[in-house]
């Protein structure tokens, strides 16, 4: 829907003002990471320094939290790539009893408030007498990341024509060969985009994680703890900027990858 008329000035102001509002806190974090002040948030900023970056990345607790978050996100992304692609492959061309319920089930972990998923998983782990650990965090994350991959892959499946698969079979390739040489190349960018988004989603997740982490500290949990006890303000600022960048870059990359297709990645979180 496009009209040829020009936008009235007030609408333009509201639209660009809205964008400015959306980016304002991000700019603030980027500025404060270079601030020289050590224990408060006074504005205007006191001075410019790069020292806190060296200090933050020299801290063992920061590095341990980053490493844990990266590991969890990697495992959750792998699991959701597998499960999401399988679910998409099974559901896109077939109609069967219970299909709707199955789709709903995949969406449920992000449709329900995170606190419900978190406490449900925690109480299930308790019933099974599993101690909270790396794996309980990863299981929780994979549960809500699957739908991101699923959405991307099923959109790509719907867009690609099945006749290519049939042609490959007609020419004598078996199912595995066809998958390897025909289906997979078609899915590649959708898988990459879905994987990137799943990674970003997992890397940043905090609500479910507070329940499943026990004493483990992922990067968002480390940040939350910092906020409860205001100390190391400069270190916190630097880590905040880092987390912000790690979560924003994948979504821009995913958008680039799926640009021009009808279902653009990342429109649903």
């Amino acid at each position: 829907m496009h009209s040829e008329a020009r936008a009235p000035l007030w609408l333009k102001l509201l639209a660009y003002g809205g964008l400015a509002f959306l980016h304002f806190p991000i700019v603030v974090i980027a500025l404060y990471a270079f601030n020289t002040e050590e224990s408060a948030y006074s504005f205007p900023l006191q001075g410019f320094t790069l020292d806190w970056f060296a200090a933050a990345f020299g801290r063992d607790d920061v590095l341990a939290a980053i490493w844990l978050s990266v590991k969890v996100a990697a495992v959750a992304t792998l699991a959701s790539l597998l499960l999401g692609t399988m679910a998409a492959a099974a559901l896109y061309r077939r109609r069967f009893w219970g299909k709707e319920a199955l789709t709903l089930m995949l969406i449920l972990p992000i449709a329900l408030p995170g606190i419900i998923t978190g406490i449900a998983l925690l109480s299930a782990f308790k019933l099974l007498a599993w101690e909270p650990s790396f794996w309980t965090i990863a299981i929780g994350h994979a549960t809500f990341c699957v739908v991101v991959v699923y959405n991307n892959v099923i959109a790509r499946f719907r867009r690609s024509s099945h006749s290519l698969v049939e042609a490959s079979m007609d020419l004598g390739a078996d199912g595995f060969t066809t998958f390897r040489h025909v289906v997979l190349p078609q899915l590649a960018t959708a898988l990459l985009a879905g994987g990137l988004l799943a990674f970003a989603l997992s890397f940043d997740e905090i609500i479910v994680t507070t329940f499943t982490a026990g004493h483990e500290r992922t990067l968002p949990i480390w940040l939350l703890n910092q906020l409860g006890r205001p100390r190391d303000v400069p270190i916190t600022n630097v880590v905040a900027l880092t987390v912000m960048l790690i979560t924003m870059v994948p979504v821009i990359a995913a958008w680039k990858l799926t640009q021009g297709t009808e279902a653009v990645a990342g429109s649903g979180k």
Binding site: L19, I29, L223, T236, A240, V243, M244
Partner: peptide, 15 residues
């Protein structure tokens, strides 16, 4: 619109 949506939730709250 998408970049701020995906930008870390906890960092936005902190900001």
């Amino acid at each position: 619109v998408m970049a701020p949506m995906w930008a870390s939730y906890i960092v936005k709250a902190y900001s």
